[in-house]
């Protein structure tokens, strides 16, 4: 097995997830303007619809809705695609054995991947068009348990740091390697690095926690109540969701 490939994969993965979890709202299209209190349930309904069917007609209908929402949100295809390609591909690999064991295996594998693609796409659209503080505000608006919202906000805060730390460690390790290592040595060093990574991540988390306490954190992340307004945009969005769901039920 090529050990360098494993290291390279770990580095690429940490770089990917570092950006994946710390997104920024891009563009200023239609979806970006929608009140998240309407947008969140609307897109979640489409996610549920995506994963609740194997009917090609229904999935094509959802794809149409996705295309409309994507086009109106003015997000570049590159940004969008870079965030979604990995998960459907991974799910296709997972479901691939079906192709060899059942007569309808290939159809099942493709439909399964299609469903995953749609669900991930709707979620990605939501993430790319909604600020994280708005997500927290919306979850609180819908009276989700405070502990859940706090865990979510804390996870968001630390996950980016964790991947940053891992990426830095891998880069440092690579920059100090002057000769090709044997497999055993690579595994041994990898184990040491993993331990070191956990210590560094823990210490970093402590410092971030201290900083957040210094800035007023008392165990609960507070956000200002947004002055969202229901406008024609929200009505249009709700109409699109209703039409899609009506079509989904009747298809």
């Amino acid at each position: 097995m090529n050990m360098e490939l494993i290291e390279k994969t770990a580095k690429e993965a940490s770089a990917f997830f570092q950006n994946f979890f710390s997104y920024e709202v891009v563009g200023s299209g239609f979806l970006q303007k929608i009140d998240p209190r309407i947008k969140m349930p609307g897109l979640i309904a489409l996610v549920v619809a995506s994963v609740s069917t194997f009917s090609l007609e229904k999935l094509i209908l959802l794809l149409l809705a996705l295309a409309i929402l994507f086009a109106s949100s003015k997000i570049s295809f590159r940004t969008y695609f870079s965030r979604i390609w990995m998960i459907p591909l991974f799910s296709f690999v997972i479901v691939l054995p079906h192709v060899f064991f059942t007569s309808t295996g290939i159809e099942y594998a493709l439909l399964f991947t299609f469903r995953v693609f749609l669900a991930v796409s709707f979620l990605t659209l939501f993430m790319l068009t909604t600020r994280f503080s708005d997500v927290l505000y919306t979850l609180r608006f819908y009276k989700l348990p405070d502990i859940f919202v706090t865990i979510l906000s804390t996870t968001y805060r630390y996950i980016h740091l964790m991947f940053c730390e891992l990426y830095r460690l891998l880069l440092a390790r690579e920059s100090r390697r002057v000769r090709e290592l044997g497999s055993r040595e690579i595994w041994r060093n990898g184990g040491k690095m993993l331990g070191f990574f956990f210590i560094r991540a823990y210490e970093r988390a402590e410092r971030v926690h201290l900083a957040s306490v210094a800035r007023g954190y008392d165990g609960r992340t507070k956000v200002y109540g947004k002055c969202f307004k229901l406008t024609a945009n929200e009505l249009l969005f709700a109409l699109l969701i209703c039409i899609t769901l009506a079509g989904w039920f009747n298809a």
């Binding site: 710390s22 994280f132 968001y156 740091l161 940053c164 410092r207 971030v208 201290l210 900083a211 210094a214």
Partner: peptide, 14 residues
């Protein structure tokens, strides 16, 4: 308090 490393200090999305 301003911490030495601003990366420890800044953790919001914008």
């Amino acid at each position: 308090v301003l911490f030495q490393n601003p990366d420890d200090f800044l953790f919001n999305s914008t």
